[in-house]
Amino acid sequence: MRTKKILIPLFRDEVAPRFDLAGEALIVAVSEDGTVEGRQNMVLPHASADDLCDLVLSRDIDTVICGGIEEEYYHYLRWKRVDVLDAVAGTAEAALTRFLTGRLKSGDMLFAGGGDRV
């Protein structure tokens, strides 16, 4: 059974609002039945979209859950067959939980607020 890997760039405990400015990343290994098999928090030497893309590829990440990401990096990752769920706003845990139940999509706002929320 293949384990899927998810990477979430972090800002504190939230999905980093910007891919290129994330100082940390959470990597989660998930089995096909949705069980979390392992997780690893990584502090990045410096914020860089290029370095984060390299990390995604070197770690064989299947899905990136992130906030704002530039078109260039978004398409690069997609071209490298990495799924990208971008413009996700919320805590990393909320995003991960939603992803594991198959309900997370790009643009999801997971904070409680005044407008329409998922």
């Binding site: 800002f11 400015l21 904070f111």
Partner: peptide, 18 residues
């Protein structure tokens, strides 16, 4: 309206603030 109540860093995504 859809952004009301959301931390500004997730909407404005301003480099200076982050």
């Amino acid at each position: 309206r859809e952004s009301a109540g959301i931390p500004c860093r997730h909407v404005l995504r301003c480099g200076l603030h982050l």
